[in-house]
Design a protein around this nucleic acid. Structure first.
Lengths: 343, 343
DNA sequence: TTGAAAGCGCTAACAT
DNA sequence: ATGTTAGCGCTTTCAA
């Protein structure tokens, strides 16, 4: 057992001493970019390091080098599958580059987000990734903070919130919904109802507009009284569908909801009214959350490549020269039993 | 516009100079624990810092102080709701203590986990939290690595994997399942079937044993042919339930599955056989995943306080003296429509 | 190839 | 209350 102060790790100097070389040589052997160390000393140093259980102090290293090996990821809520999947992608990409990810959550508060950016900035991460759609309001303070970060050499990328002056990865909600509409028409559906979320939500807007546009291509129009706005939640979907049933279905054969949870709510409303979703009335959603395959019948939806979004965000931040670049990731229509083919 | 090197942030010295004080004073004003700075200079420094957009370099700070403000969290898969919820709790607790969380994922590989612990250790985090149940095999290397970390003053806590010599937060699966059994008996059920996961999984073992124990209290025994082992997955549940139906139900009135996804699979199997879950045959699961309320009928289950587990893990790591302490978190029975009260 | 020495940005005695 | 002076652990000139 080597004598060593308790409560602290062996330092580079310890290793150097043990190996009988200078700290500089030990540094070169262990973490150096330039490999000008003799085989012999190299072995000595590596040996001593292993023996002592030496782990380089990354703070000190960062301090000396002036750069870290971390990236910061900011999400609204890591327990939300949407964000956790983005995080998974980001972490994967970061680890592939030898970077470690530090994470913080805003709880959807803009103030908190600003605080967090500032704190995280203290770690001098290679990049800061902001994930989560901003709620319109003034983001001047945030942009100012990020500007300073950039001025100091930091990279920024954002996920799903076009409008910030940074590399952005986003998903083409309009196109995805439009494709879904086309697929549904091909399945034989002709009369549609649309359950949309609040108009203030760009995501919801894009999806309903895209869906209607897709139908328009097939010369199908949707009667205004079959387009209903409600909360972007399961209860919202339930309420909207109930409202729809109240107005009279006429011969509507499919309900499109702007997201899966609304669609699931709508399915519940149908059942409450004694209808069988998928048989009496088809239902489709958007997001392809995991619950989409848990419900009965399984829900037709549009998959959003959340994991890929995280991956690309890291890539964008680290490797793109063109800030302001927007990467549009494709969605994927998934047809399931809630929209059986109509004979 | 102040003259400043581009590509680097203003330093404490810059602030001090701008404020006309020494670096030490600036340090005390900005980040000092002891507040021995005159109102006047304090204002001066704060002002200069704000003007320059100064953000303390946390690496340097850590280096000088010999301690960081981070904790490391290691999970198998952040996209898994179980882990993301634990992470949410951990992040919340950490942020409350002013700590930021860096995260890494193992992808369930023991080798990768070891690597990660070593890398993360380089950041000299206050604590390392390991979440995820280990798969029995030899963990000597991991423990050795953690020992060194501890020797250097690091704190370790683990979630859900009793057996490691560290503070552990776990959930009492046995008691939870037992309570569920009691609640079900109180609801009028008398004849049970149990769909268990692989016996190698402690979680599954504890749950089925607990359930049977709970029934035993009510003097109810479960016939061996109504206890079926299968994969801990939805398909496993489906297969097991199908098998059960094949063996003949006799007058079994409720199926308990060792987790929710199995239960959901079982519900699917019932429907496939023309039975209506909840009406013809009750079903209950364990975990209370979000899908439990999405399925129809909503699934009776036992809630696992994943978020609280994350919270407590941080707490344990940071504030507990007694390593080896095990915190058992209580589960909560949630009765839903899949197990209606029997008249 | 190697070592001595300076310095990264900050903190913490130690003086004053 | 403030400034001076050493460090923290590591990297990186600069000589040798």
């Amino acid at each position: 057992m080597t004598e060593r102060r308790t409560g602290s790790s062996p330092t580079l100097r310890d290793v150097a001493t043990a190996a009988g070389v200078s700290a500089a040589t030990a540094s070169r052997a262990l973490n150096g970019s330039t490999r000008n160390v003799s085989e012999e000393k190299l072995a000595l140093v590596l040996d001593a390091a292993a023996k002592l259980g030496y782990v380089p102090n990354l703070s000190a290293q960062a301090n000396a080098r002036g750069s870290t090996n971390t990236v910061a990821l900011i999400v609204h809520d890591i327990a939300d599958p949407y964000f956790s999947s983005i995080a998974a992608g980001a972490i994967e990409a970061a680890e592939a580059e030898g970077l470690i990810v530090s994470m913080a959550v805003t709880g959807r508060s803009a103030d908190r987000e600003l605080e967090i950016v500032s704190t995280l900035r203290g770690h001098r991460p290679h990049a800061i990734i902001l994930a989560g759609s901003r709620v319109g309001d003034d983001q001047d303070a945030l942009v100012a903070e990020l500007r300073e970060y950039e001025a100091a050499g930091g990279r920024v990328a954002v996920v799903s919130q076009p409008g910030l002056p940074y590399g952005t990865v986003s998903v083409d909600n309009h196109a995805g919904a439009s494709e879904l509409a086309a697929a549904l028409v091909a399945h034989g559906y002709r009369r549609f109802a649309v359950l949309r979320g609040p108009d203030a939500l760009r995501t919801s807007r894009d999806r309903s507009a895209g869906f209607l546009a897709g139908l328009a291509v097939a010369k199908i129009k949707v009667d205004g009284r079959f387009v209903i706005e409600a909360d972007f939640t399961e209860d919202g979907g339930h309420a909207a569908a109930t409202e729809l049933l109240g107005r009279g279905l006429d011969d509507v054969d499919l309900i499109f909801a702007a997201n899966d949870v609304m669609a699931i709510g709508a399915m519940r409303a149908l059942r409450d009214a004694g209808l069988v979703p998928g048989r009496d009335l088809a239902v489709a959603g958007f997001d392809d959350i995991s619950a989409a395959t848990d419900v009965d019948p399984a829900l037709t939806s549009v998959g959003v490549p959340t994991r890929a979004m995280g991956l690309r965000a890291i890539d964008l931040a680290l490797n793109s020269e063109d800030k302001g670049e927007i990467v549009w990731l494709p969605t994927a229509v998934v047809l399931r039993e809630s929209t059986p083919r109509r004979s």
